[in-house]
Design a protein around this nucleic acid. Structure first.
Length: 446
RNA sequence: CGGGACAUGGCGCAGCCUGGUAGCGCACCUGCUUUGGGAGCAGGGGGUCGCAGGUUCAAAUCCUGCUGUCCCGACCA
């Protein structure tokens, strides 16, 4: 993409309303634009990031056996009256009426709807287990939206739902999601720690919040330091195998947010040097709730014995739009964002430092064509602005690799590759630049 | 939902206390110069001062109401 034809409205100054770093950087780097409290428009660069995150989530969901669907944002109030949540949900739910004065709502979540969809077709244990997910905009009328997209009212969420014949089978479904979440966040460069959360009516250990550490986190978390180092399940993970050992390994060390924290247990279980106390941002939540919705909605299936039993379900959420903010909280410096390669809007920023020099223009055009041919996502700064403007803008938007071409280096027949993360600058002969970039991208993503 | 603040060109702000018809920096446009870290000179365009009412000869400025936004605390992907 040529910058001269792109839409990248960067801000030189900090918008007054943004107080935390991710919000500031998202506005300054032209990722989003606020429309009203807690509601954002996604500009081209931010939208690319959102799509990258979505793709990783989708890939890991499918790998774990979940099936993608798409449910509407607008729902009828009927289903919610049957589950009892139409009253219960309160003011967080945006209620609407259509022209016939029928009650509708903008979905804050989809347990009722998905249960209805699934149970209308699933008749027996032979149709189980299944896991359906979708990635769709939600609306929760938060009392106090803040922190940019991290606590918006409208937000993009992956919500998945499992359906099983009995509780034991439900636990297996839960473990699949648990393990897939570890992998999902890892692929975005995040260390998300599963923390025991309130379990509601079912009890047991079947609710976990996945949080990443960040100074601006909304809750205080307490955990064993080992969790920061523990190895992740690899690409060869077999979701049909027994995942209990993995889940047990990850849930054994102490890890709780402030609402569940018990100082006495923490201090008895964790040695002083192993105690980690930090702020956390919740990016995912897995929850097994049994027949909480299937019973009121009369979603039943036949057992092998011919009895009729309610479906056993869990729900599994990932805050997709929140992750954009969360990742920036985890990866930035004074100059701007530092995108992990897996979700960077472009892999390479090609910068022409000598826009008035024919040899620089020619070289950049050639490189740009080569990079495109190699399938490397490139943002080409072909503007005629000053070098300082270009370089600081590139740093602000945080592309992992900068490829700088200027009269100074071109005289030596080289271009410069600068790593955004380390600031390391390498001179590479012009003819080898694309190959080198390819190697760098391969090395890091491997 | 309790407490607090703010609202003035695209962005960041001053002006308000003590009423006299709007200004600064950045951005933008034109020209010339400049080009390896947010350029220089000259010229130029753009604002019913959030909305509605009131006081006054006169309101960005004083008064009332409304709306919007942000911050702190209790709740949530």
């Amino acid at each position: 993409m040529r910058l001269t034809r792109y839409f990248l409205p960067v801000l030189k100054e900090n918008p007054a309303e943004a107080h935390i770093v991710s919000h500031r950087l998202m506005l300054r780097a032209g990722l989003v634009q606020q429309q009203t409290a807690g509601i954002y428009a996604w500009l081209p660069l931010g939208f690319r990031v959102l799509k990258k995150i979505e793709a990783i989530v989708r890939d890991e969901q499918e790998r774990a056996g979940s099936i993608e669907i798409l449910m509407p944002t607008i729902q009828s109030a009927d289903l919610w009256e049957r589950s009892g949540r139409y009253q219960e949900y309160g003011k967080e739910m945006l209620r609407i009426q259509d022209r016939h004065e029928r009650d509708l709502l903008y979905g804050p979540t989809n347990e009722e709807m998905v249960t209805s969809i699934f149970s209308s077709a699933a008749r027996s244990y032979r149709d189980l287990p299944r896991n359906l997910f979708h990635i769709q905009w939600k609306f929760r009328d938060e009392v106090r939206p803040r922190f940019g997209v991290m606590r918006g009212r409208e937000f993009l969420m992956k919500d998945g739902y499992s359906f099983d014949i009995d509780a034991e089978s439900g636990r297996r479904s839960y473990r699949r999601m648990f393990v897939s979440y570890l992998r999902t966040f890892e692929r975005m460069g995040l260390r998300a720690i599963p923390m025991a959360a309130q379990t509601g009516p079912i009890g047991g250990d079947l609710s976990h919040e996945f949080s990443i550490l960040a100074e601006t986190g909304e809750s205080q978390i307490f955990c064993h330091r080992d969790l920061m180092e523990m190895s992740m399940p690899g690409d060869d993970i077999d979701y049909d195998s027994d995942l209990k050992p993995i889940v047990e390994r990850w849930t054994k060390p102490y890890a709780r947010a402030d609402d569940e924290h018990d100082p006495a247990v923490f201090e008895s279980e964790v040695a002083p040097n192993d105690r980690l106390e930090a702020r956390g941002i919740e990016v995912g939540h897995v929850f097994f709730f049994g027949s909480k919705y299937s019973e009121p909605l009369e979603a039943t299936v036949s057992t092998p014995e011919g009895r009729s039993v309610p479906l056993q379900s869990g729900s599994y959420g990932i805050g997709v739009s929140r992750l954009v903010g969360a990742i920036i909280e985890a990866y930035h410096d004074d100059a701007g964002i530092i995108w992990p390669e897996s979700i960077a809007p472009f892999q390479v920023g090609l910068v022409n430092l000598g826009p008035d020099k024919p040899e620089c223009v020619e070289c950049c055009e050639s490189l740009y064509a080569q990079l495109n041919n190699a399938g490397i996502e490139t943002l080409f700064d072909d503007t005629s602005e000053n070098p300082g403007v270009k370089l600081s803008r590139m740093e602000l938007i945080g592309l992992p690799w900068q490829l700088r071409i200027g009269p100074r280096s071109l005289k030596k027949g080289v271009g410069e590759i600068q790593a955004r993360r380390t600031g390391e600058n390498t001179e590479v002969p012009v003819d080898n630049l694309v190959e080198r970039i390819n190697t760098l991208l391969g090395r890091v993503s491997a």
